[in-house]
């Protein structure tokens, strides 16, 4: 399968004698996959995102891009203060030749709970609400790749949870995500890649243990496999798909399942196993 983005031995320095911001990075993003890019401040996450989507040229190495349309959520954005969110999103929809995307934008803004609505001038929005507008513009169109830089910063907990759900839905629909984040809001979704001082570090399948030993689990039976969850599925005796989900993750898991129109057959049908 052709990758959506593939970086091969990519290095980047901003000045001729400056330090290497990226050092021999090789990374492959397949379709319908998610990579969480973790790393400290100044580790090169934002630069890697810009190089990956072609906004910045690598000093060395090659970048292959196999997507036709993409959405971007930059870290800090200063949109025109006196323009309303609705006008801004309408302009972007026109730019993308998808004028119908404005109705999708309304739905996404509602789901993210953009409190003053889309008719507020962007200069009057709080940092969190402005973030929701920027997220909406990336999510309102049907694209192959979405690149997000610290998408959870300034979002309220409800907004964070809803964003995770939307990401899971898009992932299930075949969209590819490259997300730089300090937080673990995405949990163990996708693959976690660590960037340290411009070098790729550890790559893990999950960000944290799916089943912390001291946390009770809840068994949830669904009619179909959940396409966007890190938890392993087993078969229930009646053919349902059974997941054992840590108690703290149950709300998010169920929300994701319902948003994907999966049928929840049973909740906690058996006693949760207590791990030794």
């Amino acid at each position: 399968m052709a990758p959506v983005v593939e970086l091969t031995a990519v290095s980047k320095r901003y000045r001729r004698a400056g330090p290497l911001v990226l050092d021999q990075i090789s990374l492959r993003l397949n379709a319908a996959s998610l990579i969480q890019l973790h790393g400290g401040n100044g580790s090169g996450k934002s630069t890697l995102l810009r190089v990956a989507c072609g906004f910045s040229l690598p000093t060395h190495g090659t970048v292959h891009r196999g997507y036709s349309a993409m959405g971007v959520v930059p870290d800090r954005v200063l949109p025109p203060a006196r323009m309303t969110a609705r006008a801004y999103l309408a302009h972007l929809a026109q730019l993308a030749r998808t004028p119908h995307a404005t109705s999708t934008a309304e739905r996404i803004a509602d789901r993210l709970r953009l409190v003053p609505g889309l008719d507020a001038p962007m200069g009057t929005l709080s940092r969190g609400n402005l973030r929701k507008v920027i997220l909406t513009q990336a999510l309102m169109r049907s694209v192959d790749l979405i690149v997000m830089d610290e998408p959870f910063v300034a979002l309220d907990p409800a907004g964070c949870a809803e964003l995770v759900t939307i990401v899971a839905e898009r992932l299930a629909q075949g969209c590819t995500f490259l997300i730089a984040t300090h937080t673990d809001d995405l949990g163990s979704m996708g693959r976690v890649v660590t960037l340290e001082a411009g070098k790729l570090g550890e790559t893990t399948r999950t960000a944290r243990p799916a089943h912390p030993t001291d946390e009770p689990t809840v068994a949830i039976d669904l009619n179909e496999p959940h396409p966007a969850t890190p938890f392993a599925a087993t078969s229930a005796p009646d053919g349902a798909i059974r997941y054992r989900v840590p108690a703290t993750e149950v709300g998010r898991f169920l929300q994701g399942a319902l948003d994907l129109h999966l049928l929840v057959i049973r909740l906690n049908p058996v006693e949760p196993e207590v791990e030794p």
Partner: peptide
């Protein structure tokens, strides 16, 4: 970045 990604 946003306008460029939207326009393509």
């Amino acid at each position: 970045l946003i306008s460029t990604s939207s326009q393509g």
